[in-house]
Design a protein around this nucleic acid. Structure first.
Lengths: 365, 365
DNA sequence: CATTAGCACTCACCATCCGCGAGTGCTAAT
DNA sequence: ATTAGCACTCGCGGATGGTGAGTGCTAATG
C-alpha cells in the first residue's frame, strides 16, 4: 500500500500514542494530541483508509484504532524517530555492568539481566554451541567397574561430561596415560576440531587403547552437538504489561519460556535472517520480528528483537528481548544492540585469546 | 483443640477430598463419598465444631468447607495416609535421572527438574555456599595496566573471579611465580580454609609480594561470601493449578521466584528448623511450611516442602517444592526426600572425595 | 474537491437485578 | 446422640438497560 506523507504522519502518530498509552486511539484524541490541523472527521477518513490497507485495526466497532502487525512493520522500517539516542539512565546502567566473570554463563546471565533492565522486557540469550568452545583440559574418572567418566572443561568455564565404556580393568597408570594423551593433543583446541580426521592422525600413538579412544571420540561428537542453552531473565517485566491481564496469556508465555530448545530455535531462526535486519551504525545488526511474523503461535502478540554476539569475529549466539508488539521499538533496538556490542567485546577479551593463553598460566603446563 | 477419632476421620476425609477435587466439600458429598454411616446433618455439626476449632473454614456462607492452614497442619502431623509408597511412575522417573555431570550446577538443575516432574509443582534448590567448595585451581590474568583478574575454579565446576589491584608493572615471570604459589598452597583446600591464619603462615614465602597476596586474600573473602544461588524449575506446573486463576497471583509469585536472595533466605530458614521436621525413614528429614507458616506474604497460599542435601556428611543446601496449600503432602514429601537422598549420594560420589583426588588426574599435577 | 459539522448507530463496559442451587444452622422429632 | 425438616444465605450466571466513546455516512462549506 502506498502511503502519502499525511498518512505516514497519522500512522506514526497512532503508533507513538498507542505505545505510550496502551489505549486504542480515536480520531478525537488524535486531532487534539497532535497538531495535524485536521478535524476528527478527516482523520476518520484517513484512518478508514489505513485500516483498509491493513495497517490499522479496531479491537471492536466502537473503539479507536490500534496498529496491526503490518502497521508496526511500516513504522519500524520507515517511520520511527531514530534521533533519541541512549538516555542518560541507560548509559549509567550500561556502564555499571562489567561483564567480568570467568564463566561464560555468568557473563551471559549478566548481559541478559542488563538487557531486561534497559528495555523493561524479558530478555533471552542463547549461549554458544559448544563446538566453538576451546577445550581447557580433560579429566577421566573411574565410575563403577567398567566405565569411565569423561569430563571436558572448556575455556569458557563450562564442564561437560559423558560416560565411556571401558573393556577390562583400569589401572591408575593407564588412566593417567590416557589423560595425558588427551590433554596433550586436545588442550586449546576447539571442540569442533575434535574430528575423525584428527583421530586418524593420532591413533597410532596409543594403538593398544584404540577402542577406548574411539569411544571417547564418539562422546566428543555427542558433546559438540549437545543442545543449545537459553537463559531467560525478568519474566516479571513482561507479564506486568497490560496485554497480559488474562492469566491464560501468562501461562502460555511462561510455558514457552520454559522450553529451552524451542527458544533456541527461535533465536537461531532470527539470526539466519529471513526478516529484514537493521544496522544501527555499530557493528551489530538487529533483527525485529513483529507479532505473527514470529514462527510460534505463543509469540503472536509479542515482538522479538535480537542481535547476534561475537567472540572474535565469529557470531556465536544471540541476545534479545521479548516484549508486547506495543513496544518502544527504537529504544529496545538500541539497547539490544548496545548490549550485544559490549557483550561481544567482553567475550572476545575474556575468551577470544589465541589458543593456549588461558591455560598457559595454569601450573604444570 | 482435642479431636476425637470421628472428628479426625472427618477432617482427614475433607482434606483428602479437597486435595483431589479443589472444590469446597459440603456435608452431603462428604456423607455420600465416604462411608461414615452418618447423615449430612450430623456431619454438619461436627464440621461446625471443626471450624470453631480453627481447622476448617468456609470460603463463603453457602459453600462447603475447606481446610485451614491449621487443618492441613494437623493432617500432615497426625492424619495422612503414609502407606502409599512411591508409585511405579515415580520410580521410573527416579531411575531415569542419572545426576551424572561434572558441574554442580547442572546436577542441581537436573535434580530440580526431577523434583518438579515427580510432584507436579515448582521446584527450588539452593546451591551450596561457596565456602564448602574445594579449590580446583587458580588462575591470574592481566587485565589492563595495573589490575589482575583472579579466577578460582572450584572442584564443583564453578569458576569465580575478582579483580585485584597490582602496584607497578607485572612481568610474565612474576605472574607465573604468584600463580604457582597460590596453586601450590590452595589447590584442594576448601574456600573456607583460605583464612587470615593461613595467610600468616605463608606470607614469609613471598614477602616481596605481600601487598598483592593480601589483596588476593581479601578477594577470597569476598568470594566465600558471594550470594547463594537458587535454581527454579517448572514454574508452569504451579501456575496451572486452579488456585492461580487470577493473574495477580501469578505475578506476585513470579516476582518472588525471580528474587534469588529472598528464596535463598526462605530455604535456609526452613533448614534451620523453626518448623517441625519429619524423618521419613531415610536419612533425610523433610520440613513442611503450610500457608501462613511461611515467612513471606507471597507464599501465604502456598506450601513449601524442603529437605537438606549433603556432600559427605555435611548439609550444604536445600531442595524442595512450592505448591498450593491444597497439596498431596505425603506424595510430595516422599518425592522431595527421595530426590534429596539420591542427590546427596550423587554429589558425595562426584564431589565428596578426599582432597586432591579430582585434580590429581589433571595433567601436570 | 478536500474538509468538516452533524447525526444516527454500534458496542464494550458497568451496574443492577433476579432466579437457581448448593450448602448451612437451627429446631424438633426419633 | 442422631436425624429429618425447613428457613435462610449467598455466590454464580444470565438478562437487562444506561452510558459514553468512537465510528461511518451524508450533506454543507470554503
Amino acid at each position: 500500500m502506498f502511503l502519502n506523507s499525511r498518512q505516514q504522519a497519522i500512522l506514526k502518530a497512532i503508533v507513538d500514542d498507542y505505545v505510550q498509552t496502551a489505549e486504542p486511539v480515536g480520531s478525537r484524541v488524535l486531532s487534539k494530541r497532535f497538531n495535524f490541523g485536521l478535524s476528527p472527521a478527516t482523520l476518520r477518513n484517513e484512518m478508514a483508509d489505513l485500516e483498509e490497507g491493513g495497517l490499522l485495526r479496531q479491537p471492536h466497532t466502537s473503539a479507536g484504532r490500534i496498529p496491526s502487525d503490518a502497521g508496526y512493520r511500516v513504522f519500524v522500517d520507515l517511520l520511527m524517530d531514530q534521533d533519541d539516542c541512549l538516555t542518560e539512565e541507560m548509559r549509567v546502567h550500561l556502564e555499571r555492568f562489567t561483564f567480568a566473570s570467568s564463566s561464560l554463563r555468568d557473563v551471559l546471565a549478566q548481559a541478559a539481566k542488563l538487557t531486561a533492565v534497559l528495555t523493561r522486557c524479558t530478555a533471552i540469550v542463547r549461549s554458544p554451541n559448544l563446538g566453538v568452545s576451546r577445550i581447557g583440559y580433560v579429566q577421566l574418572l573411574t565410575v563403577g567397574e567398567s566405565e569411565l567418566m569423561l569430563i571436558v572443561h572448556t575455556q569458557h568455564g563450562a564442564s561437560l561430561s559423558q560416560v565411556v565404556e571401558w573393556l577390562g580393568v583400569v589401572t591408575p597408570e593407564e588412566l593417567s596415560l590416557l589423560t595425558n594423551f588427551l590433554n596433550h593433543h586436545l588442550c586449546g583446541r576447539y571442540l569442533d576440531q575434535v574430528t575423525d580426521q584428527l583421530l586418524v592422525n593420532l591413533i597410532d600413538e596409543v594403538a593398544s587403547y584404540e577402542s577406548t579412544i574411539r569411544g571417547i571420540w564418539q562422546k566428543f561428537q555427542v558433546l559438540k552437538h549437545s543442545e543449545a542453552r537459553v537463559l531467560v531473565s525478568s519474566v516479571s517485566h513482561l507479564i506486568e504489561q497490560p496485554e497480559f491481564v488474562e492469566a491464560q496469556r501468562i501461562r502460555s508465555l511462561l510455558n514457552l519460556l520454559e522450553r529451552e530448545a524451542t527458544l533456541a530455535e527461535v533465536l537461531m531462526l532470527m539470526a539466519q535472517g529471513v526478516l529484514p535486519r537493521r544496522s544501527l551504525g555499530g557493528s551489530c545488526s538487529v533483527t525485529v520480528a513483529i507479532g505473527r511474523e514470529n514462527p510460534l503461535p505463543e509469540l503472536q502478540d509479542c515482538s522479538v528483537i535480537t542481535a547476534p554476539y561475537y567472540i572474535g569475529d565469529q557470531a556465536v549466539g544471540e541476545i534479545g528481548v521479548i516484549g508486547p508488539t506495543r513496544l518502544g521499538y527504537w529504544r529496545a533496538m538500541l539497547a539490544v544492540e548496545a548490549v550485544a556490542d559490549r557483550l561481544s567485546r567482553s567475550l572476545t577479551r575474556l575468551f577470544g585469546q589465541p589458543s593456549g593463553t588461558l591455560i598457559s598460566r595454569r601450573p604444570g603446563f
